[in-house]
Amino acid sequence: MIEGKSIYLRYPDGTMALKDINIDIKAGEMVYITGVSGSGKTSLLKLLMGIEFPTSGLLKILGQTMEKEEASNIRRLRLKLGPVFQEFRLIKGRTAIENVMLGMRFLNLTPSEIKRASHDAMEKVGLEHKLLTPVENLSFGESQRVAIARAVARKPSLILADEPTGNLDVDNAVNILELLESFKDINTSVIITTHATHLIKNSNYDKLIHINNGNIYCESLGCSI
């Protein structure tokens, strides 16, 4: 599903964000990317979302090479992704259900399919009673759930969540992580970045990637949380 070899990422200001990253994530895996702030985990996720492109090295997601020249193919690839952004990125002035539906409007689904899938997703995240609430009136936790509902309603092959617990208290954060983990299945991989390693001690993940200073410091069982 995701294959990365010797990936380097240097930003235009010269900052080397990622160095010699090698990753291999298979379909249906639950993966955590951890590291302190500024370690490079968000940069790695930006590569996976197609927001940034490797300066060198090879990155393939669902068979698509991630290169700047492949912009139109990468747009199509994004239709198979379920991104959950750190700052939620919900569309203001619209209700919760409208935001969820918006993520599906260009997937060639009928209006009834969109409606059904978005209602199901809102139910899964436990917000079936907030369908018509404007997103401005939702709490942080609820906003994060709507963002997750928008991602999962699309039935993506890959859910990518960037610091989904960043603004939440411990209880809410654990709930959100458990919720995201629940969407992992045989066809859907879930990748979550977090700096709060204490929250995932009891998690049932398949892979743990710890990044330090742009390098993969340790992976899976080699990492001690």
Binding site: M49, I51, R75, R78, R89, I91, L102, R105, F106, R154
Partner: peptide
């Protein structure tokens, strides 16, 4: 910001 979000979700430019 809304336009960026839609692009990140894969929305075509025409949409």
């Amino acid at each position: 910001e809304e336009i960026r979000t839609l692009r990140l979700l894969g929305a075509p430019e025409g949409f």
